[in-house]
């Protein structure tokens, strides 16, 4: 009988290829479509009452038959990449008997899964295909990174032998990181779109999506950190040890907290807001890759 893990090794390159194809299709669609038209909503709902307010966000334009067909392929390829990653993680879960979060390789693949899930949700819900230009490259790079790591299955070290908290703690991290990547993608696009004449996107929608994704990210990060503290209290005998990894997670949480406060109570929008979201995602990557140089209590991860 073939080793399921050896078979699963072919899934990641396939997922990477499919992701890149989806990205190329999205780029073609975005670079050839016309500017979105305004809708009649303004006839019903009053426009902004002050000069500082943005215009209402227009709906996406109707697509031509050609780009509509390509759009279906682009979305389909992204969904296939997501399914391939899901299958890969499922195989590892079945083989290892625990969530696919036990080492850098597994977490990198799970990170990709979270990113694709968040992106597909946003594309389905908001029809904001332009996000793919910024989000899918992150997913592709992380897949490539995961493929370069040791994919061997090793037993869980004693500290990780808590299936419930391992699944919950890291599971929330994956969802948070996926949402954060979407907010990062929206922020990057917000900053670069004005410089790319062929990329026709509504900046206000990007600003709004970046904010909404951060609104999702922040509570998920909070729950992730609190579950980590609860677990640390059980496993290490201290709910907080200023371990470098948990300290980096706190930095991330503070940045997203600052973003939400700046946005909600100080009215930060636009470029300043976008930069904070980029810094927030950089902090997430720092916390994630930090394992390579931090050491500390999370050094096994």
């Amino acid at each position: 009988m073939p080793d399921p893990l050896r078979l699963a090794e072919f899934i990641l390159p396939a997922a990477l290829i499919v992701t890149v194809i989806a990205l190329i299709a999205d780029i073609v669609i975005l670079s050839t479509r016309r500017a979105p038209a305004r809708t009649r909503e303004q006839a019903l709902v009053g426009g902004p009452a002050d000069a500082a307010s943005p215009a209402p966000a227009p709906r996406p334009a109707k697509k031509s038959g050609q780009s509509g067909g390509l759009a279906a392929y682009a979305t389909g390829f992204t969904a296939i990449a997501f399914l391939l990653i899901t299958v890969y993680l499922g195989v590892r879960m079945i083989v290892t008997g625990h969530g696919p979060f036990a080492n850098q390789h597994e977490f990198a693949v799970s990170f990709v899964w979270g990113i694709l899930l968040a992106y597909l949700f946003v594309e389905w819900k908001l029809k904001l295909r332009a996000l793919s230009v910024a989000v899918l490259p992150v997913a592709a790079c992380l897949t490539l990174y995961a493929m370069r790591l040791d994919a061997g299955v090793e037993p869980l070290v004693p500290a990780l032998q808590n299936n419930l908290l391992l699944t919950l703690h890291v599971g929330f991290a994956i969802l948070a990181y996926g949402a954060a990547c979407v907010s990062f993608g929206a922020a990057v696009l917000y900053l670069v779109a004005p410089k790319l004449r062929r990329l026709k996107v509504n900046l206000e929608r990007l600003d709004e999506v970046g904010y909404k994704a951060a609104v999702v990210t922040f509570p998920l990060l909070t729950i992730m950190i609190l579950l980590g503290a609860l677990w640390a209290d059980t496993a290490w005998g201290s709910y907080w040890s200023w371990d470098p990894k948990e300290t980096a997670a706190l930095v991330t949480w503070l940045i997203y907290g600052a973003f939400l406060h700046a946005r909600v109570v100080r009215g930060w929008r636009g470029r300043k807001s976008a930069w904070l979201l980029i810094i927030g995602f950089a902090a997430i990557l720092f916390a994630y890759f930090g394992n390579n140089f931090f050491g500390g209590l999370h050094s096994y991860a």
Binding site: A35, P54, A55, P58, P194, L199, E204
Partner: peptide, 8 residues
């Protein structure tokens, strides 16, 4: 229309 919304 602000500068930022001209791409809309």
């Amino acid at each position: 229309a602000s500068k930022e919304t001209t791409h809309a």
